[in-house]
Design a protein around this nucleic acid. Structure first.
Length: 228
DNA sequence: GACCAGGCACATC
DNA sequence: GATGTGCATGGT
């Protein structure tokens, strides 16, 4: 792997300089962040926004108890624009049931748990996988946990930093061992990776503007799939 | 109309 | 452990 300890920090600094702060997560309360994390699974954020707006309109995001009291079907209708609405409404319910049974519906109490235990408990909820779990830990509970996603693997593998076939845990370990354990750094870094993936790699896949072009050791390619 | 998006669970080999 | 499939909407 062509990487020393500074490569990842170096890339972070280039992204930050280029794009500036991203102000993530795009949601106000821990509950909204958690629901958003489930809704955005394999789904464009613009669709999630419509679903969140529907939930807010009927004040379903005002407390976990409100979601607890609403029916799975009613929830599904509200989140319809986010896609996979039957699956996702069940997943949101699963999380609320978990919060109810172990923590009296208190997000504050849940958030006070030690990070490693919190992670394994969240991972045991059906519908919460590694990325959703780590997004919740980082963005809702402010724990220093690095979030890996499809963009992270694609971008860094195309730049020759590591192989795309590495597991989630392995990629996360590379970032967390190479960077200081800093919640704000992890917050900004993941947000910047998503920004780069969305804005440049997808819309202008020639890499001409890419703030990381010096790191490129691939090219020349001719299709979207080959670029990011 | 095809392809994609800030995944995950489950079945199968 | 690797690979394949269903889940669904809205934008390009």
């Amino acid at each position: 792997m062509t990487m020393n300890k500074n490569t990842l920090l170096d890339i972070y600094n280039k992204l930050y300089k280029f794009f500036g702060p991203q102000h993530w997560w795009p949601g106000d309360t821990p509950l909204e962040i958690i629901v958003g994390a489930i809704l955005t699974q394999n789904t464009a954020w613009t669709n999630v926004e419509k679903a969140i707006a529907n939930l807010k309109q009927v004040r379903l995001l005002s407390s976990p108890a409100k979601i607890k009291r609403s029916g799975r079907k009613a929830l599904a209708r509200l989140i319809r624009p986010a896609g996979y609405y039957n699956v996702k409404s069940a997943r949101i319910k699963n999380f609320i049931d978990f919060l109810d049974s172990g923590y009296g519906l208190s997000l504050k109490r849940l958030g006070r748990r030690e990070t490693a235990k919190l992670r394994s408990e969240l991972m045991s909820v059906n519908g919460i996988g590694p990325e959703t779990c780590d997004s919740i830990l980082l963005y809702a509970f402010k724990k220093p946990v690095f979030v890996v996603d499809a963009y992270t693997k694609r971008i860094f593998s195309r730049h020759g930093i590591f192989s795309e076939s590495l597991s989630y845990d392995k990629v996360q370990e590379i970032f967390m061992r190479s960077l200081p354990s800093d919640e704000r750094l992890y917050n900004e870094y993941h947000a910047l990776i998503v920004r780069l993936g969305k804005e440049l790699c997808r819309k202008k896949p020639d890499c001409g503007n890419c703030p990381l072009k010096e790191h490129l050791n691939h090219l020349k390619t001719d299709s979207y799939n080959n670029i990011i």
